[in-house]
Design a protein around this nucleic acid. Structure first.
Length: 504
RNA sequence: GCCGCUAUAGUGUAACUGGUUAACACGCUGCCCUCUCAAGGCAGAGAGUACGGGUUCGAGCCCCGUUAGCGGUACCA
């Protein structure tokens, strides 16, 4: 028999997949992959106003990018509204829910919070009893049959308390008095979130609900619905939230693309690294380990290791170097430079080069320059922070039309004499045999002596001419990667190479 | 307003059933290497655990209160 554990990730398609949802999905996934069981994807698209196919696509893409798959679905919640409605009818028939004929009041999205507080203050904290709660069943049926519009509410007990054990937060108790008779079905006949979720979770035989802690108060209501439906509630585990540096909720409107997963894909993040990074937002294996492979994450993951305090996703839009959380950037660099197996990074760089039209089939696994490609990637990966570093900062390794950093030029090539020296160095390299790490270095140093300049002048000048950049790997390694002819040519043409090619 | 949750360096997290000087990582600063660096190596600063009480030989861990932040309180999801 199959493992009975069944979890679901249930995003609503009202925007792209953001960091918080991605982490929720990841935790569900790690949990089910660790214990065995079934991962279900359910798109909660009942809000027709805000749901879009584009959002659904973007969410699926995001999940795929970060390596989360699912065993069932995607199911679309809107397909089950009939089920939701019939569950409500059943509850009404059983007297567990009732029709509320109070005329619908228009709600304004912008002022709901204030309205709620005002109404609560007016009621002085007392639960107001709905006048239709005890309406005679026959009369209720008659008025409904007459076509009078109504909403359906659940009969919440007047006395007692609602209690459940949250795997992360422990015992959760709330007085029934603080839960009002929640609406199950709107007067236009559409079911409400709490009802739909419960019916679907029952039908899909969900055993563990892992979601953000903004749902804890919903959980009390949902458990009441489970009970009313004679179903056993699943195990609940709520997750701390992820905030922006100002402790506000991460949102597209306020924080822009930094919260979207696709941004990370498009800006050169390695999915393994990003996944590793967000796994650590609110969870820890209890040890010092941070860089963990997928298998390690699965092996070490546990709901008990989840921290209860909300986490801050620490980015700053003021500085481009910290456009996203510095630790995420570090994690990515860690994967690019060390953690990724060679085959994987070769593939990632290939994708990057292809997208910039810098790829050559000669670099392919069976191509003549595959060894060169491999050693070049190996040389460059130590300094890479994002995948596009390979094509942007290191364009000179793949093409001849690389830009020259103006600051590097000003610093290393301001003296016209240097350009002449570099040209001569290029000529000497042209006839150098063999062109190797040691010989290239000794030729350069000897020539520096001869010319009466410090070796650093030729070294830094060479780096600027050869790569256009003020920084990079050891210069002789760069020369070996470029090869004799390209090195010699670029140096000989130092003046032309660096003329009018300043980048910003 | 009411209900609930949380509180350990700037950030992410540790600290076994209360037990040395509160640890690790990112970030920051400095030094070293050296041909440069956003690479590598080393070192350092930075919290006395939100605040106030209490229990205890001993409290970041337990209890009470306060404060702050957050979540919820909808015919939103």
């Amino acid at each position: 028999m199959a493992n009975p554990i069944r979890v679901r990730f249930a995003p609503s398609p009202t925007g792209y997949l953001h960091i918080g949802s991605a982490r929720t999905a990841l935790f569900n996934w790690l949990f089910v992959r660790k214990h065995g069981g079934t991962m279900i994807l359910r798109i909660e698209d009942t809000d027709k106003q805000r749901s879009t196919d584009e959002s659904t696509r973007s969410i699926l893409e995001g999940l795929e990018w970060i390596g989360i798959d699912w065993d069932e679905g995607p199911y679309y919640q809107s397909a089950y509204v009939d089920r939701h409605r019939s569950a409500v009818e059943q509850l009404v028939a059983e007297g567990k829910a009732y029709r509320d004929f109070t005329p619908r009041q228009a709600t304004d999205d912008k002022t709901v919070k204030a309205d709620i507080a005002d109404r609560a203050r007016a009621n002085a904290g007392e639960k107001v009893r709905n006048p239709y709660r005890d309406l005679d069943a026959a009369e209720s049926d008659r008025r409904a049959a007459d076509g009078e519009p109504f909403a359906v509410r659940l009969k919440v007990p007047d006395e007692g308390a609602s209690t459940f054990v949250d795997t992360v937060y422990g015992d959760q108790t709330v007085d029934m008095k603080s839960i009002e008779d929640l609406v199950l079905l709107k007067s236009d006949g559409s079911p409400l979130y709490n009802l739909s979720v419960v019916v679907d979770d029952i039908d899909m035989r969900i055993t563990h609900v892992i979601r953000g802690r903004d749902h804890v108060s919903n959980t009390h209501k949902q458990i009441l619905i489970y009970r009313a439906l004679d179903a056993e509630p699943p195990t609940f585990a709520h997750l701390p939230l992820i905030f922006a540096p100002d402790r506000s909720k991460l949102s597209k409107r306020k924080h822009g693309p930094v919260v979207s997963l696709t941004t990370y894909r498009d800006r050169g993040f390695v999915p393994e690294a990003f996944r590793n990074f967000i796994a650590l937002l609110g969870w820890s294996p209890g040890t010092d380990e941070e860089v963990m492979s997928l298998d390690e994450l699965i092996a070490k993951f546990s709901l008990e290791g989840i921290n209860r305090a909300d986490a801050i996703f620490n980015f700053s839009d003021a500085d481009d170097r910290t456009w996203t959380d510095a630790k995420g950037l570090w994690m990515n660099a860690e994967y690019l430079s060390k953690a990724l197996p060679e085959e994987r990074i070769l593939g990632l760089v290939e994708g990057e080069l292809r997208s910039k039209e810098l790829w050559s089939e000669e670099y392919a696994a069976n191509g003549p320059r595959h060894d060169w490609y491999r050693s070049t990637v190996d040389l460059l990966r130590a300094r890479a922070r994002t995948i596009d570093d390979f094509s942007v900062n290191n364009r000179a390794f793949w093409a001849d039309d690389y830009p020259i950093d103006p600051k590097a030029k000003a610093k290393n090539l301001s003296d016209p004499k240097t350009l002449e020296l570099l040209a001569e160095l290029g000529r000497r390299y042209e006839s150098l045999e063999p062109f190797a790490l040691e010989t290239a270095e000794s030729v350069l140093r000897a020539y520096a002596d001869e010319a009466g300049v410090k070796a650093g002048v030729l070294i830094n000048g060479s780096r600027t001419v050869l790569t256009g950049s003020p920084v990079g790997p050891g210069i002789f390694e760069v020369m070996m990667a470029l090869g004799k002819s390209r090195t010699a040519e670029r140096l000989q043409g130092a003046a032309q190479v660096t003329a009018g090619r300043e980048s910003v």
